[in-house]
């Protein structure tokens, strides 16, 4: 009898501990989001009201309207979205190609190329930013164009060129993921395609690629998220213009209090900034929600592991 109880208590205790742990971690992760959400609906008076913690006394959508206008949201969103989608699609394509080449073919120098891929991952992008800046400021394809070359700054070209050649933000990681993924795929499938007379590229496109969809989803999601959040490259190549959501958000606090001298201006600016941050990450949350099931489940079958 005693033994029976013991057996039942142990898993129960484990479940409770697990619950406590997961709830705690989830709370810490979700807390900033929840604070932002609840404060975005508050009036300034609620900020001073000690009885108001999460639920605002008077719900207002005014901050959303203000942030929308101050950030010029539709315009900034369109720019950010176009750039991010372009960059992530290009990176997805180039990194998949390279990953396939490294994962599926044996050739001289393959290992060296893979080592170089890892090398690009280790170098902080800030280390090479000045020469990168100069490369695109005086772009002459290393002597092919007459000096002083083309000024590619303030355009999408630096992003397009770097993404399509797989040296953009964290592209080393994407190549690594795709390489591991393709390496884990069965050889029989590929051989069968060759026996049936499919060419090397056709085999890649019609046989291997469909099997790699979970990997593609992860790489696309990462590429999209990191480009959307990117502040570094946009500032470097496009400058501090407010045309992109990152900069619009960065300037929001200042814009909100422009010309105001009253005592509440800092509170107002904070409310607007928090609302703006929510509006900034909303598209990412939406994307994550759409891909989440796929993403979370597919991890198990991906080759992220070595």
């Amino acid at each position: 009898m005693k033994n029976k109880i013991k057996i039942k208590i142990k898993p129960f205790l484990a479940a409770v501990l697990r619950m406590v742990f997961l709830t705690g971690v989830s709370y810490i992760i979700l807390h900033p989001l929840l604070t932002k959400f609840s404060s975005s609906l508050m009036t300034i008076n609620d900020m001073f009201d000690d009885t108001v913690k999460w639920v605002p006394r008077t719900v207002t959508l005014q901050h959303y309207r203000d942030a929308w206008n101050l950030m010029n949201y539709p315009h900034a969103f369109r720019n950010s979205f176009t750039l991010t989608l372009t960059v992530s699609m290009l990176q997805l394509m180039s990194c998949t190609l390279v990953g396939y080449g490294l994962g599926r073919f044996k050739f001289k120098g393959g290992k060296i190329i893979f080592a170089l891929v890892l090398f690009t991952l280790v170098v902080p992008p800030q280390m090479v930013m000045v020469p990168m800046y100069l490369t695109f400021r005086y772009f002459d394809i290393y002597g092919l164009l007459p000096p002083p070359g083309l000024n590619l700054l303030n355009s999408y070209w630096p992003f397009v060129l770097m993404s399509s050649t797989a040296v953009g933000l964290r592209n080393g990681l994407f190549i690594y993921i795709m390489r591991q993924f393709f390496r884990g795929m069965p050889k029989d499938l590929e051989d069968a395609a060759y026996v049936d007379g499919a060419g090397l590229f056709r085999t890649f496109l019609t046989i291997m690629l469909p099997g790699a969809v979970p990997g593609l989803v992860i790489v696309f999601l990462f590429a999209f998220v990191w480009q959307w959040n990117d502040y570094f490259y946009i500032t470097l190549f496009i400058g501090g213009k407010t045309d992109f959501l990152t900069h619009a958000l960065d300037n929001l606090a200042l814009r909100a209090v422009e010309g105001r001298t009253d005592l509440l201006r800092n509170h107002y600016s904070s409310l607007i900034t928090n609302t703006g941050m929510l509006m900034f990450i909303a598209p990412l949350l939406l994307l994550y929600a759409v891909m989440q099931r796929y993403f979370v489940e597919s991890i198990e079958r991906t080759g992220i592991i070595g």
């Binding site: 180039s94 190609l97 490294l102 170089l116």
Partner: peptide, 14 residues
Amino acid sequence: VVAGYLFCLPFILG
């Protein structure tokens, strides 16, 4: 072998 290099070409260029 040639295909291997071709697939890796984007990265080599970049």
